[in-house]
Design a protein around this nucleic acid. Structure first.
Lengths: 258, 258
DNA sequence: TCGCGGCTGATTGTCAACAATCATTCCTTG
DNA sequence: CAAGGAATGATTGTTGACAATCAGCCGCGA
């Protein structure tokens, strides 16, 4: 983890045009940027499940005050990427099968709504955007690498939800996606063969493009539920196998000593 | 708005039993309690839409430091009850028709999922809890007062979602409910006659008790959507009427002078 | 009259010191 | 030897002071 860039660009009047075009380019407050840095550490797995987040240590690492770190941790807590135990500790949440189930059922519901709304409101412009996103997924899948294919998959789903024009839904979905990413990366072996990805998504995309709201909603739900059940059963197996091991009596996460 | 109670109970060993039974009774941090106080002000309408939340003023009112107020405002922002404009201001969000639409469509989706899960997992115990909540609604409706009836209505819906056993869904639903409460209170005139409330909810409750997941989901959705459409169209009328007034050119909220 | 640039008061953002709380250890006591 | 209970060190919670930023105002010049 490297330092946060403290420079906010020139103080004088230059760059006024660019600031108009993209007003947030350097105006993000420090705690937001710290939150970004910490989020990246957590999603990448460099801060693994159970990792203890000590304010003073983080502040020292990032060359930032403790209060700023605290604000960032608070934000990440609201996004489900950090657990807080008041007066005691911050830590990275464990990856339990129950959580995977929650994430996928919730995702199915939210994406069902998003797909329905997207189908209702489809226009030539939004349809083109959706098609482009779908094409990118097919391309990535053709290459055969898992990482980019997963990202293109996530991007397509996010595009669909974005087309709904539903602000709260979009925001909530993005939070969910971040949590999901952590699970997917932790067990990336369960990625199906990339060749099938296109066919798995085509019906949903077509339904939205055709404006068939009910059909799109049903397809989005079933697609997510089947994907979710796969991940859930896999994680459940891992959990049960771990529960049999003598070192973790009550389903607690396993601590690695040495 | 009165001061936050700074006393946290006796420091000595007494009350250990009570703390065991309810360990959080006095351990809530100050910023959480400030958030509660501010939330109450906002939901009650004493801090109306557009109200400017100045940190120093709030800190003075609550006899608390600015940092604590800041943390509370941040929490409320994550819950959709406060808007933040970085480096500039905090304020209470406006009540737009678009937001009412978002809230109700999202609520229908979430409660649909909750109802489905509740029906799947129904037990004699949870069924009794649901029935009791429903009975309380019918009782409140019989009295005929709008306020308690609305609260009992909200409580029943929350009970259903709570029976799903879906942690993330429950938390998300509670946030949504708070936002909804603000809209419902702002136009409480649209409360239907209380006599019909029981009949409007009975099919959903029965479906859950009978374990009919698909039926329960469909009923929850349609119920919320019809309720939502009522509120949406009403708010839209108010908004359009206001837009015709000369003082608010671009759909901006109306400022009441004097 | 209009637009631009700098000033100004108000407000938010950041920091480092101080206070409160907790988990752990170790000691006492029966 | 077990149970309870005070010291202890580590960690989080809270505060007031200082810094950065912003919207609005004012005057200058074209």
């Amino acid at each position: 983890m490297r330092d946060i860039d403290r420079n906010r660009g020139p103080r004088n009047g230059a760059m006024s045009m660019q600031r108009l075009l993209n007003p947030r380019v350097d105006r993000r407050s420090l705690d937001r940027r710290v939150a970004d840095a910490l989020r990246e550490e957590i999603l990448s797995g460099r801060f693994p499940p159970g990792f203890r987040l000590v304010e003073t240590w983080l502040a020292q690492q990032l060359q930032v005050s403790r209060g700023t770190v605290r604000a960032a941790l608070s934000e990440l807590t609201h996004q489900g990427l950090v657990d807080q135990v008041a007066y005691t500790k911050w830590s990275v949440p464990d990856l339990r099968a129950q959580d995977a189930w929650e994430l996928y059922t919730l995702r199915a519901s939210l994406e069902g709504l998003g797909s329905s709304l997207a189908a209702e409101a489809v226009t030539p412009a939004s349809g083109a955007e959706l098609s482009a996103s779908f094409d990118r997924l097919v391309e990535s899948a053709a290459v055969g690498e898992v990482g980019p294919a997963v990202e293109a998959d996530l991007a397509l789903h996010k595009t669909i939800v974005a087309l709904s024009g539903h602000g709260r839904l979009i925001k909530q979905y993005e939070i969910l996606e971040q949590q999901l990413r952590r699970y997917m990366r932790s067990s990336n072996a369960l990625m199906h063969d990339t060749g099938e990805i296109g066919n798995q998504h085509r019906p949903l995309v077509d339904a939205i493009l055709a404006g068939q709201a009910a059909e799109a909603e049903a397809l989005a739900k079933s697609h997510n539920m089947t994907e979710g059940r796969k991940l859930y059963t896999k994680l459940l197996q891992i959990e049960q196998r771990a529960a049999l091991a003598p070192a973790s009596p009550q389903g607690k996460p396993i601590e690695l000593r040495s």
